[in-house]
Design a protein around this nucleic acid. Structure first.
Length: 798
DNA sequence: CGCACCACAATTTTT
DNA sequence: TTGTGGTGCG
């Protein structure tokens, strides 16, 4: 055997042995798992098993290193070893597979030398969990983190090199917003002409382009752009304010990490040497800064694997640039591209529709999803009379699917804008269909939570002026706004921290009147800080609640709202306890980091049997058997703002693609002939996206014209006439259908009934309400309250 | 200082 | 239509 022969055979056999570990993957997936070296762009279509590939890829790196993608042989590779490999490759029941595997490894990677970056905590957690399940405890050392948490981790060791204290705090968007508002007031910038949010947007964009506040201002001056000059001033003040408070906003976390890596050779060398393999998930959602971060972490070794789907890029509005994925091959030389197009989620008709819609986009790499499943049900397009009809239709079909044995949790209602959820909610409520809404105010954005956390922040670092001013008179301590302002100007004049001024309030004549209260407050914080050094977090939390009197103030006025707030604070305590339990950490600093980067506590209970309501944006990454997309109309989806804007339109179309591909079995699109939104009624045409779906994949259904739907029957207090049908898949005659009326009227208390979704029940109460009745029915699963007319459609007397 | 009332605006969202 | 933020009054 020549040396060359030996080498070829060895490499082939070794690869075959490795691939045995990944036999449950398809060919493309195996390629993606084994192409370990150099830049790799993985175009992973919706439902193509992207996370599975990511996990298996990491497993391959840890077990076999670069062996599956290298021509290198181990030193002194022998013919005996080759025989073992070849036999193991051939024989599924090879006895000493462990030995073959050992021989197949080539520089296996240590877990802490793999960094896998995601966008959301949820994705990071999923990655961590699945990695640990596959690889055991070793997996815990893998850097499976979000962009932001990875940056925090790096900055906590090196922030001093950028002039920050390593214990810097993190400002979230609303913190940033209040800083901007204060600055705008100080600089006398009108919030009419310069909305704080838009100023923040400029700042964020500038950081994305790696521009400092000074750069921004200079540039604006050079261009003589008065607007940008004013924004530049705000930017400069904002940066100073944060720096003085030793705080970073979300953009700073990434910006500063990039700055650190690009400007400090030692640090750069350290991390580039550390990370042998860099993986980035959801690459289509990255912005310019994140690209630079990825490049800086990767270094010359070039082992970067990005996973993404250009067709699912839907976050342009928050800075994501599809350009990153489209030009990956230019940015990283000799990149390989692998497409994952086999879909494991949806039936054929759904994929046919998805492919047909997305094909209309220009800016894309090009992909076609396919499946081994059969065509399944055609999609349904329901043309409703109005938004009430739409909502009724959704509720009614969900009940039908439940009747056929599905669970509520198999259903999702998706929409373009949150405002659309209202009517659906009412309709689901009327039918006692359990649901949950994703989106809306997040737990950590709630006032009381922010207040308590602000206390904790101040205790940790009193120079955090933003949080300090938030809590100084909350609960009321008789420290007025004026007083705080005076103290602030003294601090500025002296060049000292606001907290110092409060602490020494008696020294300043201007603060004479409130000096006692101010010092009391400062002493309280000082005491708490002293305590925080030796007290575990959970105990400290209770003490803070007590000493600050926050909860006591709420208890004094037990309104519903305050009761809820107290409950939320209790919830926060629960959170702290589980944090301690999970991490074993009892320090305040660690917890505040976690909280700053963790926003969704509500999303934890995904096992309850509920219909899910959310925007299509929030639905990305999820899947359901039955999906309803509502408001599929020109002006809503695509939104009015994107009509006439080709790029925006493509983004809407991608959103549509995301929506469609959430469905496993049934997809219903609904548009209404007439709709009231934001108090205005309009008649919209069906969305162009519907027109883009060939009729072979979709079936049209329409509510027949029925005048009763143009008025709003369910609130018809003027008419007790119970003639109108609530479910309108029936022709118009229903208005005159006497039996119909009899059906809903004939139920009385004590009747035993069968409901299609809730099965056997007994009517326990009937309360007339408007032209309808509230009926309470005792089912096995408990007492449900339904509106009789709606419910009558789904039940009959036993 | 807190509460009530009125004007106004309202894609999409994560960290 | 709904929620929020600002102003003015008690």
């Amino acid at each position: 055997m020549t040396e060359k022969d030996f080498k070829t055979r060895y490499i082939r056999a070794r690869k075959a042995v490795i691939e045995r570990d990944f036999a449950n993957l398809n060919d493309m997936q195996i390629k993606a798992v084994t192409a370990t070296e150099g830049p790799l762009l993985l175009l992973a279509g919706a439902g193509s098993g992207k996370t599975t590939v990511l996990i298996n890829r990491i497993a391959n790196l840890l077990r076999y290193g670069k062996a599956s993608d290298s021509e290198e042989l181990p030193e002194n590779a022998s013919e005996a070893e080759l025989k073992i490999l070849e036999d193991a490759a051939k024989d599924e029941n090879y006895p000493d597979i462990a030995e073959a595997r050992r021989l197949s490894a080539l520089e296996p990677c240590e877990p802490w030398r793999v960094i896998a970056i995601t966008f959301t905590n949820k994705a990071a957690d999923e990655l961590k969990t699945r990695l640990e399940r596959m690889l055991g405890a070793d997996a815990r050392d893998i850097w499976a983190q979000t962009f932001h948490s990875a940056c925090v981790r790096i900055l906590r060791s090196h922030a001093d090199k950028l002039g920050y204290d390593r214990s810097f705090t993190i400002y979230d968007t609303s913190d940033s917003l209040s800083v901007i508002k204060h600055i705008a007031k100080e600089l006398d910038i009108s919030d009419k002409e310069f909305p704080p949010k838009s100023i923040l947007n400029y700042i964020s964009k500038a950081k994305d382009e790696f521009q400092t506040a000074a750069d921004f201002y200079t540039q604006a001056s050079a261009m003589n752009d008065i607007r940008r000059k004013i924004i530049g001033q705000a930017f400069i003040a904002y940066s100073k304010r944060l720096k003085d408070a030793n705080a970073m906003d979300f953009d700073d976390l990434i910006y500063n990490t990039v700055l650190l890596l690009e400007s400090n050779k030692d640090v750069r060398d350290y991390y580039q040497k550390l990370f042998k393999y860099v993986l980035i998930d959801e690459y289509q959602d990255t912005n310019n800064l994140q690209y630079r971060l990825a490049a800086a972490l990767t270094g010359k070794r070039g082992n970067i694997c990005v996973v993404g789907d250009d067709d699912q890029s839907i976050y342009k509005f928050r800075g994501a640039t599809i350009e990153n994925i489209l030009s990956f091959e230019k940015q990283f030389k000799n990149a390989r591209v692998i497409r994952l197009e086999q879909n494991y989620r949806s039936m054929g008709n759904i994929l046919g529709a998805a492919n047909a819609v997305i094909r209309n986009n220009q800016a894309r790499k090009g992909k076609e999803l396919w499946t081994k499943k059969d065509m399944g049900e055609k999609l349904t397009l329901y043309i409703a009379q109005n938004e009430d009809d739409e909502a009724r239709y959704v509720a009614s079909s969900i009940l039908k699917s439940v009747e056929l044995g599905e669970n509520f949790r198999d259903n999702a209602v998706l929409y373009r804008i949150n405002a659309q959820s209202n009517k659906i909610e009412y309709s689901l409520k009327r039918n006692s269909i359990p649901y949950r809404i994703i989106g809306g105010t997040r737990f950590f954005d709630r006032q009381e939570i922010k207040d308590i956390l602000a206390y904790l922040c101040v205790i940790l670092s009193p120079q955090d002026e933003l949080r300090l001013t938030r809590v100084v008179n909350n609960p009321p301590r008789g420290i007025g706004e004026k007083t705080v302002e005076t103290a602030q100007s003294i601090a500025v004049a002296e060049g000292s921290a606001l907290f110092e001024v409060l602490r020494n309030a008696n020294r300043y004549p201007a603060l004479e009147r409130s000096a006692v209260k101010l010092r009391q407050f400062a002493n309280m914080i000082d005491d708490l800080r002293l305590l925080s050094e030796s007290t575990p977090l959970d105990e400290l939390f209770d003490i803070v609640l007590d000493k600050t009197g926050y909860v006591r103030a709420l208890e004094l006025k037990p309104t519903d709202e305050n009761t809820a707030r107290i409950e939320n604070i209790g919830e926060l305590k629960t959170n702290i306890l589980s944090y301690i339990k999970e991490t074993g950490e009892t320090s305040l600093a660690g917890f505040l980091d976690e909280v700053a980067l963790y926003s969704d506590i509500d999303n934890y209970d995904n096992d309850s049997n509920c219909v899910t309501l959310m925007t299509m944006h929030s639905a990305k990454g999820l899947e359901f058997d039955n999906v309803y997309i509502i408001g599929v109309e020109e002006g809503i989806f695509p939104g009015i703002r994107s009509i006439g804007e080709p790029e925006e339109m493509e983004e809407e179309r991608r959103l549509c693609y995301v929506g469609i591909t959430r469905a496993r079995k049934n997809l219903t699109l609904i548009c209404a002939r007439q709709r009231m939104l934001f108090g205005r009624t309009s008649a919209n045409n069906p969305s162009r996206f519907v027109e883009e779906i060939p009729s072979e994949f979709i079936e049209r259904k329409a509510a027949l014209r029925n005048d009763s739907f143009t008025t709003r029957p369910e609130v018809s207090s003027y008419s007790a006439s119970p003639k109108k049908s609530y479910l309108n898949e029936r022709p118009k005659y229903s208005t005159a259908l006497p039996q119909k009326q009899d059906v809903s009227m004939s139920f009385k208390v004590g009747d035993a009934i069968i409901h299609t979704a809730f099965k056997d029940g007994v009517i326990v109460k009937l309360t007339p309400m408007g032209g309808d009745s509230l009926v309470e029915i005792e089912f096995e699963s408990g007492v449900k309250r339904l509106m009789l007319k709606a419910a009558a459609e789904h039940m009959r007397k036993k």
